[in-house]
Amino acid sequence: MTTPKSMSIKELMELAALDAFGLLDEYETDLYSRSFHHAPASVQDEIVRIQAELVANESLLPNETPDAGLRARVLEAVARAIEEEDTTTLAPLASIGGRLSYIPVAPRPRLALSGQFWRAAALLLASTTLVMTFFWAEARNEGSRIAMLALDQNMILQLEKEIGPTFREFLGNPSCERRVFRNKTPRTHAIGTLFVDRQTQSAFLLLLDMPIIGSDDKYTLRARLEDGTYEDVRTFSGTSRNHGLRIDRLSFALLAVVSWEITDSSGVTLLHAT
């Protein structure tokens, strides 16, 4: 049995309703999405329009309204969920604090996420922001929208040079994993993500707001392997605050590393990702 690599425009149009209502199975949903991205822009626009019109059609839905108190309950439930995730994320630190219980801990305001969690979220989201905006500009061919993010031109050029039009496919690949970096030192407030694609044995390193260092100094991306040894994967200049680096031909050992680090030229670990 052969499996289709993509759907025709006719199939895309025919299955638009099923896709919008989540009625396709997992495999078909993936196939639909991939085929959608390869369809002409006019077809994409039409599908997006049809799907929105279909799901927003209230005449197919019951004519009932929620109780007035539901809003407060829902917002409270979401806030609680965010708090809980925050607490879970901080569990190891919280247990250390437990042993030092004589140290007073200030109560955290609701929805004001703790510094560390916020940083972790920011690491991921900033990367997503950049990537999504890149996609946006790439798709719409509107370079000016990138500038709205106030990223420096070097970063844009670097992204275009390093990634090219295949970046979307790279990140959209189900085998692509994200490793989010955390700061290991107060010397930097940088954020970053490493995208590792096991299938193509390649990776993409995205770093924002790195400290600028001398032109002779280099940063290093290194991997800690299962046996506890380290392997330097890539060195790069520190003359720019933002970096987008594609890394090809990762060895099999690097596909199963314990953690990733960014070190400065003296070997100090600035960022760490597990």
Partner: peptide
């Protein structure tokens, strides 16, 4: 995604009716 309270509220206000009806 960042957990901003006003954004969650805005999302709720826009889609409350539809989500409740479905």
């Amino acid at each position: 995604a960042t957990g901003e309270e006003t954004a969650v509220a805005e999302l709720y206000d826009r889609f409350e009716t539809l989500v409740f009806k479905v």
